[in-house]
Measured scan of single mutants.
Amino acid sequence: VTVDIKGMEYHFDNPEEAKKFAERMAKELGGELKVENGTLKVE
């Protein structure tokens, strides 16, 4: 699973970990979490 945090890509084997990480980063950065082509994106 790929997580894109404002252009920086992180790769996770575990989808649950990827989702938790993306949600935490969205909250910390005040960004919006989206799913695009199987990639979790925070913008």
Rank of each mutant, 00 (worst) to 15 (best):
E36Q: 11
V1N: 06
G7T: 02
G31P: 03
E36C: 11
G31F: 11
E17D: 12
G38M: 05
F21E: 02
N14E: 06
N37P: 06
V3K: 00
K19P: 00
V42F: 05
F21Y: 05
K41T: 10
G38W: 02
P15F: 15
Y10P: 01
K41M: 09
E28K: 09
E23C: 11
T2S: 07
K41F: 11
E36D: 11
E32M: 13
T39G: 07
E28A: 07
K34I: 13
E32T: 15
H11W: 13
T39L: 13
E28C: 13
I5A: 02
E28N: 05
V35W: 15
K19E: 08
T2L: 10
G31Y: 12
K20A: 14
V42K: 02
A18S: 00
A22V: 06
V3W: 01
E23I: 09
T39S: 10
K27T: 10
N37A: 08
R24W: 14
F12W: 01
V1I: 12
G31L: 14
E16L: 09
K6S: 14
F12H: 01
E9W: 12
D4G: 07
T2E: 02
A22C: 08
L29N: 06
T39I: 15
E23R: 02
P15S: 09
I5T: 01
K19W: 15
I5C: 10
F12D: 00
L40D: 03
G30M: 09
G38Q: 06
N14Y: 05
N14I: 05
R24T: 13
N14K: 05
M8G: 03
E43D: 11
M8T: 13
M8A: 08
K20G: 06
A22S: 02
M8Q: 13
G38N: 10
T39R: 10
E32D: 10
N37H: 10
E17W: 04
A26V: 09
L40F: 12
E23V: 06
E23L: 08
K6I: 11
K27M: 13
K6Q: 14
D4V: 15
T39A: 09
N37V: 06
L33N: 03
I5R: 00
T2R: 09
F21I: 01
D4I: 15
M8R: 13
A22N: 00
V1M: 12
G31D: 04
H11Q: 07
R24N: 12
A26Y: 05
L33D: 03
E36S: 09
H11E: 05
Y10S: 01
G7F: 02
A22H: 01
D13Q: 10
K41L: 09
K19A: 10
A18D: 00
K20I: 12
R24K: 13
E16A: 10
A26C: 12
E36G: 08
H11Y: 14
E28D: 07
K34C: 10
E36I: 13
K34F: 11
G7I: 02
K19V: 12
P15D: 09
G31I: 11
G31M: 13
E16C: 09
K6Y: 15
T2G: 02
L40K: 01
N14W: 03
K41V: 12
V42L: 11
K20T: 09
E17S: 07
E43G: 10
V42P: 04
N14A: 04
I5L: 06
G30F: 07
E28F: 07
N14L: 05
D13Y: 06
G31C: 11
A18M: 01
G7V: 02
L29W: 07
E43K: 09
G31H: 07
V1W: 15
R24Q: 14
L33A: 04
E17F: 03
K20Y: 07
E28W: 09
K27A: 13
N14Q: 05
F12Q: 00
D13M: 10
E36H: 11
V1T: 12
I5S: 01
R24C: 14
L40Y: 14
M25N: 04
L29M: 10
V35M: 12
D4C: 15
K20F: 06
E36V: 14
T2Q: 05
M25W: 12
E43Q: 12
V35E: 12
Y10N: 01
N14H: 07
Y10V: 04
V3D: 01
T2H: 05
K19H: 12
G38S: 06
K41A: 04
L40C: 09
E17V: 06
V3I: 05
L33C: 10
A18P: 00
Y10Q: 02
E23T: 04
G7D: 03
L33S: 03
L33P: 03
Y10K: 02
V3H: 00
D13W: 09
D4F: 15
